[in-house]
């Protein structure tokens, strides 16, 4: 059982969350221009690392917001929890985030190269 620190609600049990697969996968701008192999690469292939993995979670039974988690796939240790979206979207929701109990765990997506 994981305890996941929701960026909005604070630490909650894993049972309150849904898993959304690997994060930071960008849909190709023009899928019709891709070959079948390239499209299959986008649709089906994932990095599946042994180590730190960035993934999406949703707080289904809480605030119902999506966010990103960086988790070690061997130890299950969660090293980072940070918000979805671009820098501009993150800035828009910042006032509420500053008052959330989990503020220390929040990092903007753009801060990682």
């Amino acid at each position: 059982m994981l305890t996941i620190n929701c960026p909005w609600c604070g630490p909650r049990d894993e049972t309150e969350f849904g898993f959304g697969g690997e994060a930071h996968r960008t849909r190709p701008a023009d899928p019709s221009a891709l070959s079948d192999a390239e499209w299959a690469e986008f649709l089906f292939m994932r990095t599946n690392p042994k180590g730190l993995h960035r993934e999406r979670w949703v707080h289904s039974h809480g605030c119902r917001r999506w966010f990103n988690v960086e988790r070690h796939t061997v130890t299950n240790e969660i090293t980072r929890v940070y918000q979805m979206g671009s820098a501009s979207e993150a800035a828009e929701t910042a006032p509420a985030a500053e008052q959330a109990p989990a503020t220390a765990a929040i990092e903007k997506q753009g801060s990682r190269s």
Partner: peptide
């Protein structure tokens, strides 16, 4: 209430925080 998981109330209404914009 802008703080997560908090409630405010007046005479005829109770306001529960559900999410950062809800």
């Amino acid at each position: 209430p802008l703080n997560a998981n908090t409630v405010t109330s007046a005479a005829e209404v109770t306001v529960l925080w559900l999410g950062p914009d809800e």
